[in-house]
Design a protein around this nucleic acid. Structure first.
Lengths: 193, 193, 193, 193
DNA sequence: ATCTAATCGAGACGGTACGTCGCGTCTTGTT
DNA sequence: AACAAGACGCGACGTACCGTCTCGATTAGAT
């Protein structure tokens, strides 16, 4: 029973695309509502009708930028985890350090964006946790392995390097780190090359 | 080339103190250059003579907030490392998540700040590296341990939790993680970079 | 090309009124854009959208302060001219010397203001010129009278006293001066320019 | 019994020269104490020791800029006055309109500069007055001529054109105006070509 | 076919902070 | 003492962005 002019469905797509581009170009600081509106050929009013705040818009843009890297369960938990870690590393390398850092920062400060991002990450961790548990059940990982800790051990160093030290994350580094984590946290099995 | 009136040494201290206080009170958003200047009893001009940007000032304030956690070498490398990691965890817990994240973000975006911060962190990592090497020489850590990787494995998960997931960092968590890292990474062969 | 929200017509009036008041109170020095905005209940942004510079605003204010002295043509050109000159003198006396001088100074320095003001003055001179020509046609002024020179002779000394010497302009002075000009200049042949 | 280092006599000259140059370049607005000091190779302190205010410095600079055009008494009062008026017109043409206007404006606003300038002008008017009185005594000007009014009639239109209308001041204009003034204010004698 | 109501583009508006500029004072070491 | 150098307090300037508002012009479903 809705009346009046219907919303233009193309607006959201255009805006989010522009927003993402701006974020990549100039980071959070170079991201201006006016600029987004202008580039997307959209009035600010229209924009604020959909996203109540600049940060909401940022969140929307980021969500589409963080493409889901699917987590496959091939039956070999170790190989799958290494594979997934390599994917994450590749994703981190693809983005600007600055953008990731700023997202983290603003996520920490603004609850809107923060809870949104945390939920996004939680989803992925959940999938990984289940994969780990299946691996543990199959005896591929040491029994008693805490999934959360294993994930931290695998992914933590990557974010640490990206955000804090700025050191590069080579695939070799990722493999070595993953092997160590899987031996240390996950068990004593010899490390397969 | 005479010097002119020397800079008032007390200014920096006062300003940084006030800036830190403001940051703790209201975070990045509640941090105003005018307010800092006014509370510190300093002209904005004077302030901008030392820190060219609001962000530089923020960084300076946060840098002093990250208190030096001394790294002791008692002869027991494992125990010292666990101790140091616990200290770092305590330091992270003491700060607001947001502040650390924002500091990281500035460092990523602004090169001068970034190199300043990276150097700050590099210093600490250097000290830890030497401790690890001495421990390896004493046979307390597996030979061939790559210090950088060990440090990443110890500290990375902490920052990851603080910055990304927001999960709490209990001492038990730190100990478990450290044990895993020391068994896992400490036994790995050097990783070519 | 639609128009967007129309400008609030009351803004200009309020602002100019406040600006004039401030000028009268404290002169050019006591005139602050912030203060004008605040007293007029207007954002500084709005203010700068109309007047690109403090000086433009000052000019606008002063321009409205120079009230239109209507020039009547009663049929007696001599009497009308003396009357008008007395009115101008009264207007000059009413203003602060400084304001008029500053207005003139801005006009001299900034071309946009200058042409604006010059046009304003030209309008009045035009009306006076026509009156003079009608008077000449009626034989009340010597034939061949150059209107521009007559006006200069009538008004010039007034501005000179106000701006340069600071001597007072009594009505007697104005009358004597006008008589002299009307006998002297009004009888001169046209001056080639 | 003065002790200590004597003042550097060359300072004043250098400073005033630089100040004058700056005034001519950018007018009152483009005149900065810091810039003067820097260009003159002088410390601001030194500068403020001599001129307590920016305006005092401006006044000093202007004083040297307004070169005295000597007023000669050849025995022919009419010719001498026309000659002097032409000199003044030439002087006005030589300066930037803007600078003259600004001097007038700031003279009107700031008493320091104002009284200084007024005294400067008064001196000249005094000389002219005496010349007029001698001319009157010699019967070359109508008896009862008010010197002040005659001067106003001669010079007023010039300043008016320069400051207000912006119209040019040709020598023909000056002569015609002077003749008219001398006939109107000074007497009925026929106008010599 | 018209009425009606929501949407859209455009841009003005209030607000808050930013970083800059100039003035006149001060505090050094030097001559 | 006077000087060069330059830090300092102060106050205003003009700009940038945010989120709200008020317009006129669309654009469809309801009447």
């Amino acid at each position: 029973m809705t009346r009046g002019r219907p919303r233009d469905a193309t607006v959201a797509d255009r805006v989010v695309a522009v927003a993402g581009a701006l974020l990549r170009e100039g980071g959070y600081a170079g991201f201006t509502v006016d600029e987004v509106a202008s580039r997307a050929g959209v009035a600010k009013t229209t924009l604020y009708r959909r996203w109540p705040t600049r940060d909401h818009l940022v969140a929307a843009a980021v969500a589409t930028m963080l493409a889901e890297t699917p987590l496959r369960d091939t039956g070999d938990a170790r190989a799958d985890l290494v594979r997934a870690t390599l994917d994450i590393a590749a994703g981190l390398r693809a983005q600007t350090r600055a953008l990731i850092a700023e997202l983290v920062a603003y996520g920490a400060r603004h609850d809107d964006l923060g809870s949104f991002l945390r939920e996004l990450w939680t989803q992925r961790r959940q999938a990984a946790s289940e994969l780990i548990e299946r691996g543990t059940a199959r005896g591929q990982l040491r029994s008693g392995t805490d999934p959360a800790m294993l994930i931290d051990a695998l992914v933590g160093p990557l974010y640490y390097r990206v955000l804090v030290t700025g050191d590069p994350i080579t695939d070799d580094y990722v493999r070595a780190m993953a092997d160590a984590a899987l031996s240390g946290v996950a068990g004593q099995a010899e490390v397969p090359e």
